[in-house]
Design a protein around this nucleic acid. Structure first.
Length: 951
RNA sequence: GCGGCCGUUGCUGAAUGGUAUAAGCGAGGGUUUUAGGUGCCCUUGGGAGAAAUCCCAUGUGGGUUCGAGUCCCACCGGCCGCACCA
């Protein structure tokens, strides 16, 4: 497209062409490298600068990329270009800017590739990183390369393991509302300040017993609990990695509930702080909302229901509607609830309905059969069977504590063991699910909230006065829901039946995976099976070389299987003799063979950017305070700008926040939150063209004509989708850079629209930004001679105003990440200069070059150099607008009558309201339009608008 | 089902409650060129008119306001998140 023929070259040998752009770009990229232009000095340590750090800091980050083997398409660098533009802008407005990029390099794809090809994951991963570095370098990103690293570097994962041990060796002190070292808890047990579970003195507990007690407190703990087991992947998954329809997010395999011993992180201890600290963060509301929903705080009450014949074993339920307690007509236990075994009687009680028994001879058989069915169902099946309520009567009766009524206890899988207490009181009158269940099993309904007049629905979940809610001691009737809740909770607490409480949807984070390509746990087990932390001196614990990288996988549908880790097959590595330095001497140990999940490495990488070579400390406290510490407007501290996709709304962002808080509690960092300002960039979409069979055809070869799209003589259908190789519509940054240069690509991506909105890629439109750069070039350099054409003359008034308006607008737009409108304003200024013709005054050309520098840095550097400056403009000051020229000499004032424009006046911008009103009323067009009607009111917004309201 | 976001031109998109449609693409015309392409210049929401100018238009229908693309309500369409969470 942009190829120049010999003739054109002869006519304009110094035109800005793709070839010239390529030359300029590679020269400046080399210059920046050689001069370490983007090295950001630290206050101390090996990256400290020469002098004091006088400039304010900006820490700008992109979300950690995974080095994919497929290479980048033009959608990938969108965020990297945006942060680079912003970082360059900040650098030119007096900031010490830290911006770099590392790699989140552990992960499933490299491992799967290794399984297929036998290539070590490190080899393929490093090759991929090399390729990605090359692609990104071509874009001219101004990164501090000294600070780059990958999570697979042992130097890095040493500290990932170290943080794990910090978490393992701490507990959450509810009183102090913070994490504390586990040693302080042991001390409390030793001194008798805290009772052991069975009341025996600490000294009398065996090591195994002590380990079990501490396991209940540790923030990282191994537990035998229901987890998401995915046989198809051969690994267990975190709740966040399982989709709503019960399949693995990666690979889309069925996921089953299985009880397995796994490492967990007690993130639930931080639920409240993760929720409340969101308020002071500068994040998109949508993301805050997603986190709030995921944490799922709900206020309610715990209420104990006595079970007939089992005075010592009340069923405790959690309810958000304690006001409806009078309407609880039955109860439900989750199939996994431990009390199910306890309460089931030997025989069906008198009067048991046939429908309740599931056709079994005894309650025990009925419950066993129901549990078997529930367990064999994958979550998919539970979902697809939808809202059809199933369940079985347990044979037991409980007593409603307010009405004294006997109510049957059911077992049903619509109650989940993982939420609340795993047991509910069922109030069909006020809960749709309970209503459905009550209908299926023919259970009574008592309404305790009066539905509105004419209510024809079933369960009524809205507001209204309480009814049917009184006994000898308490009367809720007539109270609105909130008042009734308060009153009943007070009563329950006073009677010792229940208490007000807060519940969270958030569960503890499943932290182990049965994979090879991840961080090994720095944990060994002794002969009693007690877990011990490796001492810091033994870190990093490096991944051993293995023959076989894959975990054992199974038939995806075979729930009755158990994980087998790749590391467990490596006996020499697993079984070791070590002196842990705990005074017990050299002993045999067995290593933990799980590895950490992919999220571990990205939970703290922002800290490593600060002090990337530190091998003595996680991060130097002075350096951490300088870049991350709390300050005016950022009460929790954190990164100044964090840009990435919205898909990490809960997973990565929640985990990273959690680790930050633990590290803060333990005194390792001064920031409570990792990311102060979060910005989600939109996706670059692309058209997908499909033939008659629905298969994608190469998008680049589709022709548009007669209002349709054609590929090889066949009409094809167009739809908007993702960009990717499989859809045959990928466009790479390499090909666009080759065609037009990297500066054009950068400008185009930034000009396409607002950064946070998704929009389709249109290769045809790229040329618009190329033309902008060509005109810019031509405004400074003569295309024929290559001479710089700027003059020393003074610009005219119009040009000065155009310049200063552009400066003013561009500064504001860049500050607000509105790159598209910043480019539009630069384009307007440049078009103004082009249209004016003739040589451009130096006093206009130089600020223009500086203005575009953050967006198109290579051409700006080159023009700056040709304009006679030494070195790079990366640290020059961005021009500041002169307010005198930001306003026009005269402005057009519109005169409206009832909001309709009737006249326009040219007035000075400083005109007073009174003068403007007088002029407007005197205008002939206005007089004519008023046609003698009186004036009721005049609204004057000098100098732009007058609105007259006739009588 | 619940919650959130968004509907402006042929397309991507501008517009602190105050002149709707900036900038780019595409399209049409002109110019340079032997020619194509590139570059440069002009036009480009709809309707009426010779023109000045006027009328209509921001998914649909209401409302608030001197004035609404912008705020409120309902509906239609699209995107995203959650989903038996007691």
């Amino acid at each position: 497209m942009s190829e120049t023929t010999p003739a054109a070259e002869a006519a304009a040998p110094h035109r800005y062409t793709a070839a010239l752009a390529a030359d300029i770009e590679s020269r400046w990229q080399d210059f920046w490298d050689a001069n370490q232009t983007f090295a950001a000095p630290n206050p101390t340590g090996d990256l400290a600068g020469d002098g004091e750090l006088a400039r304010p800091k900006k820490f700008i980050m992109d979300m950690f990329p995974y080095p994919s083997g497929a290479g980048l398409h033009v959608g990938h660098p969108l965020g990297y270009i945006a942060t680079d533009v912003f970082a360059r802008f900040q650098r030119m407005t007096g900031h010490n800017v830290l911006h770099t990029l590392g790699f989140d390099a552990f992960g499933l794809p490299a491992e799967q590739y290794a399984v297929q090809t036998g290539t070590h994951p490190r080899v393929s991963t490093e090759a991929n990183m090399e390729n990605m570095r090359r692609q990104l370098r071509r874009l001219g990103l101004g990164h501090d390369t000294r600070r780059s690293f990958a999570t697979i570097d042992p130097d890095y994962y040493k500290w990932t393991q170290w943080i794990f041990l910090q978490i393992f060796n701490s507990w959450y002190d509810e009183q102090a509302d913070r994490a504390r070292p586990i040693g302080e808890l042991v001390e409390q047990f030793e001194k008798g300040e805290r009772d052991t579970p069975d009341g025996r003195p600490w000294a009398e507990l065996t090591p195994v017993e002590r380990d079990a007690v501490l396991g209940e407190y540790r923030l990282a703990y191994a537990s035998e609990s229901p987890v998401n087991w995915c046989p198809g992947l051969g690994t267990v998954l975190a709740n966040e990695e399982v989709t709503a329809d019960g399949r693995s997010e990666r690979g889309n395999f069925p996921v089953f509930k299985a009880k397995l011993r796994q490492w967990m992180m007690r993130i639930t201890a931080y639920a409240d702080r993760l929720l409340s600290d969101l308020d002071a963060l500068d994040w998109p509301e949508a993301i805050k909302l997603q986190q709030r929903n995921w944490i799922g705080r709900s206020e309610g009450a715990k209420v104990g229901f006595a079970v007939e014949g089992h005075p010592g074993d009340p069923i405790t339920v959690f309810t958000t509607r304690p006001d409806t307690l009078f309407g609880a007509t039955y109860m439900v236990l989750a199939p996994e609830h431990p009390l199910v075994d306890t309460v089931v009687p030997a025989a069906w009680p008198e009067g048991t309905k046939d429908a309740w028994t599931g056709g079994a001879a005894t309650p025990a058989e009925a419950v066993a059969e129901y549990r078997r069915q529930a367990q064999a169902k994958s979550d998919v099946e539970r979902q697809t069977e939808g809202k059809n309520k199933t369940g079985v009567f347990s044979g037991a009766y409980a007593v409603n504590p307010l009405t004294g009524t006997r109510i049957p206890v059911f077992v049903a899988d619509y109650v989940l063991m993982g939420y609340g207490t795993g047991a509910i009181m069922a109030v069909p009158g006020q809960d749709e699910r309970d209503w459905e269940f009550a209908t299926v099993f023919d259970l009574p309904v008592v309404r305790t909230v009066r539905p509105p007049e004419g209510w024809e629905g079933e369960a009524y979940t809205g507001q209204g006065p309480a009814i049917n809610s009184a006994n000898d001691e308490i009367d809720l009737n007539g109270l609105e829901v909130a008042d009734a809740k308060r009153k009943v909770i007070a009563y329950l607490e006073q009677r010792g039946i229940g208490e007000g409480t807060i519940n969270y949807r958030l569960r503890d984070w499943l932290f182990s995976r049965q994979r090879y390509w991840g961080e090994p746990f720095p944990i060994v087990y002794d002969e009693d099976g007690v877990a011990h932390a490796l001492p810091e001196s033994m870190l990093p614990l490096e991944l051993p070389e293995v023959e076989d990288y894959s975990p054992r996988t199974f038939e995806p549908d075979d729930a009755d299987t158990e994980p087998e880790t790749p590391l467990s097959r490596n006996a020499e590595w697993v079984h070791v003799e070590l002196d842990l330095g705990d005074g017990r001497g050299v002993r045999p140990y067995r290593r933990e063979t799980n590895t950490m999940p992919n999220w571990a490495g990205s939970c703290w990488y922002e800290l490593r950017y600060l002090d990337p070579h530190n091998d003595r400390k996680l991060v130097d406290p002075e350096i951490e305070r300088y870049w991350m510490g709390p300050r005016e407007g950022q009460p929790h501290g954190g990164v100044d700008l964090y840009v990435g996709g919205a898909e990490h709304a809960v997973l990565h962002l929640l985990y990273a926040r959690f680790w930050s808080k633990v590290l803060f509690d333990l005194g390792h960092v001064s920031s409570v939150e990792p990311f102060h300002k979060l910005f989600n960039q939109g996706m670059i979409q692309a058209y997908v063209y499909r033939d008659g069979r629905g298969f994608p055809v190469p998008a680049a070869e589709v022709e548009e004509r007669d209002g349709g799209y054609w590929y090889g003589g066949e009409q094809v259908k167009r739809e908007l989708g993702k960009m990717g190789k499989s859809l045959k519509n990928a466009v790479t940054p390499d090909e666009i850079a080759a065609e037009y240069g990297a500066d054009t690509l950068r400008l185009y991506e930034m000009a396409m629209g607002p950064l946070d909105v998704s929009r389709p890629w249109d290769t045809r439109a790229v040329v618009g930004q190329y033309r902008l750069l060509q005109r810019l070039w031509r405004n400074v350099v003569d295309e024929t001679t290559g001479e710089v054409t700027v003059t020393g003359s003074e610009p005219d008034e119009d040009t000065l105003r155009a310049l200063h308006k552009a400066i003013d607008g561009v500064r504001q737009d860049l500050e607000g990440l509105r790159f598209n409108t910043a480019i539009a304003k630069i384009t307007e200024l440049n078009n103004h200069l082009t249209k004016a013709g003739g040589p451009v005054p130096r006093s206009v050309a130089e600020p223009l070059v500086l203005l575009i520098a953050p967006l198109a840095p290579h051409i700006a550097e080159e023009l700056w150099r040709r304009l006679g400056h030494d070195g790079s403009l990366a640290h020059e000051d961005l021009p500041v607008a002169d307010p005198a020229y930001v306003v026009d000499e005269t402005v057009t004032c519109v005169v409206q009558i009832k909001g309709k424009i009737k006249a326009r006046l040219e007035v000075p911008p400083t005109i007073s309201d009174a003068d403007l009103e007088a002029q407007a009323l005197a205008d002939p067009a206005v007089v004519a339009a008023l046609d003698g009607a009186g004036v009721r009111k005049v609204i004057v917004r000098a100098p732009k608008l007058v609105n007259i309201v006739p009588a």
